[in-house]
C-alpha cells in the first residue's frame, strides 16, 4: 500500500530530526568534547565511508566497468551494448596497487602508479600551455595613458556600441595607474621566487620585499574568502535547524 502524503511528511520530519540531532551533536564540540560528540563523530565518519563505497560502486565501477565488461540488454532482452571482455585486464593492473602491503612484492605497486603518472604527464604537457598562455598574455597590461581628457573612465550609459568601442580602446590615467600596480605586483611576486642568483643588491631586495608584501596581501584575501566559506556553512546549518526542521515538523504534525 502506498504511503499517504501525511505519512510521507512524518517520514520527512523524522529524517530531518535525525539530521538536526547529528548537527547539534557535532557542534557540541564548541562547548567541550563530550561522549555525545564522540558518538556523532563516529556516526559521521562511518556513514561517510560507507556511503563512499556504495557511491563508488553504483556511480563508477558498475556502470563504467562491470556493465561495459558484461554488456547490456534492454527490457525486451535485445542486446543494446555488446560485452567487452577486455575490460577484465584492468582488474589485475588495479590489484597490483595492493601489493604495497607486501615487503617482497611492493615494487609491483609502482606499475599502476606509473601508468597513471605517465598518462597524466603526457596530457599535462599539452594542457599546460592552454592554461597558462592566456593568463600570461592578459598580464601584459598597458601602463601609459593614451588620453588625458578625463582621469577616470567616463560613464558609457546611453552611448552607441561604436562610441563604447572607441572609449574601450582608450587607456585613462586611472586605468594606467591600476595596471602599473598590477604589473609591479606580478613582477615583484615572481622576483621573490628567484633563487638562482644572489639578490643582495639593494634595489632587488626592495623589489623582493614588495613581492613578499603582495603575496601576504594575496594570502590574506584567500584567508578572508575561507572565513566567508566557513560562515556560509554555519549559516546553512542554522537554516537547517531553525527553518527547515521547524517547517517539516509543522507539516507533519499540524500548526
Amino acid at each position: 500500500m502506498p504511503w499517504t502524503p501525511q505519512q510521507l511528511n512524518v517520514i520527512d520530519a523524522v529524517k530531518i530530526t535525525g539530521g538536526v540531532a547529528c548537527t547539534i551533536g557535532l557542534y557540541s564540540i564548541l562547548y567541550k568534547e563530550t561522549k555525545l560528540f564522540r558518538f556523532f563523530e563516529h556516526v559521521f565518519l562511518g556513514l561517510a565511508a560507507g556511503y563512499m563505497v556504495v557511491a563508488m560502486y553504483k556511480e563508477s565501477l558498475y556502470p563504467q566497468w562491470i556493465q561495459r565488461m558484461t554488456g547490456q540488454m534492454d527490457d525486451a532482452g535485445n542486446v543494446t551494448q555488446p560485452a567487452m571482455f577486455l575490460y577484465v585486464v584492468l582488474l589485475p593492473i588495479g590489484l597490483l596497487g595492493y601489493t604495497v602491503f607486501s615487503r617482497k612484492h611492493n615494487w609491483m605497486s609502482r606499475i599502476p602508479i606509473g601508468i597513471i603518472l605517465g598518462l597524466w604527464a603526457g596530457q599535462q604537457l599539452l594542457n599546460y600551455w592552454d592554461t597558462a598562455s592566456p593568463g600570461i598574455y592578459s598580464s601584459m597590461q598597458p601602463i601609459i595613458p593614451t588620453t588625458w581628457s578625463s582621469f577616470v573612465e567616463p560613464d558609457k550609459f546611453g552611448l552607441t556600441p561604436d562610441q563604447i568601442k572607441a572609449l574601450n580602446q582608450q587607456i585613462y590615467p586611472s586605468q594606467a595607474i591600476n595596471n602599473l600596480i598590477f604589473v609591479i605586483a606580478i613582477l615583484s611576486s615572481l622576483s621573490y621566487f628567484i633563487y638562482s642568483f644572489d639578490t643582495k643588491n639593494r634595489a632587488m631586495s626592495t623589489f623582493n620585499r614588495i613581492g613578499r608584501w603582495t603575496l601576504m596581501i594575496g594570502f590574506g584575501a584567500i584567508f578572508g574568502s575561507t572565513v566567508m566559506a566557513r560562515f556560509a556553512l554555519v549559516i546553512d546549518r542554522m537554516y537547517y535547524i531553525w527553518v527547515e526542521w521547524i517547517q517539516a515538523l509543522q507539516k507533519a504534525f499540524g500548526q
Binding site: 592566456p134 593568463g135 592578459s138 584567500i222 574568502s225 575561507t226 572565513v227 566559506a229 556560509a232
Partner: peptide
Amino acid sequence: TGVIGPSALPYFQS
C-alpha cells in the same frame, strides 16, 4: 566556493 574563488578569478581576468 569562497575558498576556490581567488584561484578562479585570474581565469576570468584572462
